[in-house]
């Protein structure tokens, strides 16, 4: 019993260490890939970013709309309906934008990365590349990783913008908050550091989500079931990591802010 726990723990440590080494390996290849295979990165930004736009914008619109509704009905008790813009902007910029985008990104782009790479492994395409003296890390993994890292902050920014638009739609057009008060309150309370917090968060989440997707795909057991398992694990582990990291970054940011 204890022995099993001990071995599970050791196995966890080993995987964790291997993940770090894998990350370093990716980082080392980034400059070369940037110079020699720039077009591959462009394609992956398209795959991870442009193709996720529809889901991110739709979700952003409705999340913003819900913030508008909830904020309005709760703030109305204090006669502070005008602050609904501030409420929505704070939630979107600092928390919901980066976090929800990262979760959607894991579901939309992360799974497709993991299953694509996993299938390449299952069908021995990665070994074939090695035979042709093509480094699969540089040809396959790094462009996909970089594509995700570049796309994530932009997706989060788009999410926040569309969310604000949704909150505006519900708050101003539907519930009759004054448009001037809505924006004036946002501008009066939100500072550059709040926007930066969101950008830093989305950047970190982009690294985590892309790294985990590429890692799970690359280490998938080369069977149909193995690829499916890798896809599932990508979403689950990314969600856990993103939420834990979100808590940690917020804690640090709040301590720095005061």
């Amino acid at each position: 019993m204890f022995r099993e726990i001990w071995y599970t723990f050791l196995e966890f440590l080993r995987t964790f260490g291997a993940l770090q080494l894998f990350f370093l390996q990716l980082l080392r290849s980034i400059p070369i890939v940037f110079v020699r295979r720039f077009r591959l990165i462009v394609h992956q930004v398209y795959n991870a970013g442009a193709l996720s736009l529809v889901i991110v914008m739709t979700c952003g619109l409705f999340v913003g709309g819900v913030l508008g509704l909830q904020g309005h009905s709760n703030l109305a008790r204090f006669n502070a309906e005008d602050s609904v813009g501030t409420f929505a902007a704070f939630s979107l910029l600092k928390e919901l934008g980066p976090v929800v985008t990262a979760l959607l990104f894991a579901g939309r782009a992360g799974t497709s990365l993991a299953s694509e790479i996993g299938l390449m492994r299952a069908t021995d395409q990665l070994s074939a590349m090695e035979m042709m003296a093509t480094n699969p890390v540089r040809r396959v993994l790094v462009p996909r990783f970089l594509g995700g890292v570049i796309a994530m902050p932009m997706l989060a920014a788009v999410f926040s913008c569309v969310g604000l638009f949704g909150a505006h739609l519900v708050g101003v057009n539907l519930l009759g908050v004054d448009a001037g008060a809505f924006w004036q309150q946002i501008q009066a309370t939100i500072g550059p550091e709040d926007v930066w917090e969101g950008i830093i968060k989305s950047f970190v989440f982009g690294i985590v989500a892309s790294l985990l997707a590429v890692w799970e795909g690359y280490n998938a057991i080369p069977t149909a079931a193995g690829v499916g398992r890798a896809t599932t694990r990508t979403v689950v582990i990314t969600a856990i990591c993103v939420l834990i990291l979100d808590f940690m970054i917020t804690a640090v940011a709040i301590n720095f802010g005061d």
């Binding site: 902007a89 932009m154 997706l155 920014a157 926040s160 946002i186 939100i190 500072g191 709040d194």
Partner: peptide, 23 residues
């Protein structure tokens, strides 16, 4: 498509930094 996406992303970032912060 990538170019449009990146432009949109940068536009969104620009909007957030200039319009929501009072500066």
């Amino acid at each position: 498509g990538t170019g449009l996406f990146v432009l949109l992303g940068i536009g969104a970032l620009f909007f957030l930094t200039t319009q929501t912060t009072g500066g």
